[in-house]
Amino acid sequence: MFKTLNHYFQIIVGVGLVSFAINQFLAPHDIAAGGASGIAILLYHVMDWEISRTVFTINVIMLISAFLLLGTKVFLKSLFGSILLPFMLYWIPVQMLVEDRFLAVISGSVIFACGVALLYRNQASSGGTTIPPLIMKKYFGIDKSIGLLMSDLIIVVASLFVFGMDSFVLAVISIVITMMCMNYLSTGFNQKISMEIISVSHHRDILNTLRNLKTRGLSVFPVHGGHMLERRQMILIVMKRSEYLDYYDLIHSIDPKAFMIVQNVKDVHGNGFTYTSIV
């Protein structure tokens, strides 16, 4: 019961963030950055149609399409968010919270991305233009990301004729910021550091020292030099970002000439990271 309540609570928060970003940051500045909300912003400017009602109408059409073309499972997953989004858009007033357009685009896009990322994390959606890419994937084999980009691109291009070049450019910037933030939010909070170490003269000392720490697992790979074909042993260790300098100083103190390759790792799961650490 708790997991179910928490699941729906996160969906409500996600839809709330999306609605807040639209009504407080994007819509007041005429930024139609794709989606059902983008269509609603365009129609709000041209026809003076209320954003919440337009989104509700679009979502109903998309839900019917999902039920007929994609089946009951997709329909049920989209139902809650599709009904909740128009309600949130109606409840949150449309007002210009930030007067500077560029700052509003940055702030609104980041908040929008947080809301969508939270929805995706709970395998939910707010309906709208997230459904046509699923239809295109099923019937025409078009990748979902390409289908979503096509849908958003049509809306953004339409904003060029309705709002002009400035709004068009800001809408493109909004999409880019949203995509970058969502990509970071999906894995960014779990980023780690991987270090590959090759030491010609102190390999055994480094390996024993790292073993004695008993804080991180180690892997050792046989490698060959590309010029002289010398056989070496390479140590691989993955660590938290906060641990990097300690490991670097330790290895450098043992062998200042040690060859080290350091890389950012987006996501790490397993012993020592997502459950009980090594003992």
Rank of each mutant, 00 (worst) to 15 (best):
D143N: 15
F87W: 06
L69W: 13
T129N: 05
P222N: 08
L245P: 02
I235P: 06
Q233L: 13
S126Q: 03
L148F: 10
L63K: 00
I22R: 03
S65M: 14
I51Q: 03
S219H: 09
A40E: 13
M239L: 14
V15D: 07
V156D: 02
G34T: 04
L85C: 03
F273D: 00
G71P: 09
I106L: 15
I251G: 06
S159V: 05
M165V: 15
K257V: 06
H269E: 05
A113K: 02
V105Y: 00
Y139M: 11
G188D: 06
L85F: 06
V162A: 08
H203N: 12
G35L: 11
N23S: 04
P222E: 07
S194M: 13
I111K: 04
V46F: 15
F80P: 01
I197P: 09
R231K: 13
G35H: 12
S159K: 05
A104C: 05
N264A: 08
M136K: 04
A158S: 12
G188E: 11
E230R: 14
I237E: 07
Q233I: 03
T54Y: 08
P28T: 09
I61C: 00
Q123D: 15
S145C: 11
T72D: 02
I83N: 02
F161M: 14
K266Q: 13
G225Q: 01
M195N: 01
S174T: 07
R121L: 11
M165H: 14
E196V: 09
G71D: 08
L76A: 00
M234E: 10
F221D: 10
K240I: 01
F163M: 08
Y248I: 06
Y248F: 15
L43K: 05
D48R: 07
P86H: 11
R204W: 02
I64A: 10
I111F: 04
V116R: 01
G81N: 05
V74N: 02
G147S: 11
P132I: 07
D166F: 05
S167L: 06
V279D: 12
A36D: 12
K214R: 12
V169L: 15
G128T: 11
I193A: 09
Y275G: 02
Q191G: 01
L245K: 12
G34C: 02
F140N: 00
N6Y: 15
I106C: 12
V110M: 05
S145N: 15
T215C: 07
L118Y: 08
G217I: 08
I237W: 07
T276E: 14
S219V: 07
H203F: 15
G164F: 05
I206W: 08
I83H: 01
Y44F: 12
N212H: 05
K73M: 09
K266F: 11
G81Q: 07
N183H: 10
L119S: 06
C181M: 13
Y8W: 03
S78E: 07
Q191Y: 04
M1D: 02
L76C: 00
E50N: 11
M1E: 06
I261M: 10
Q123W: 11
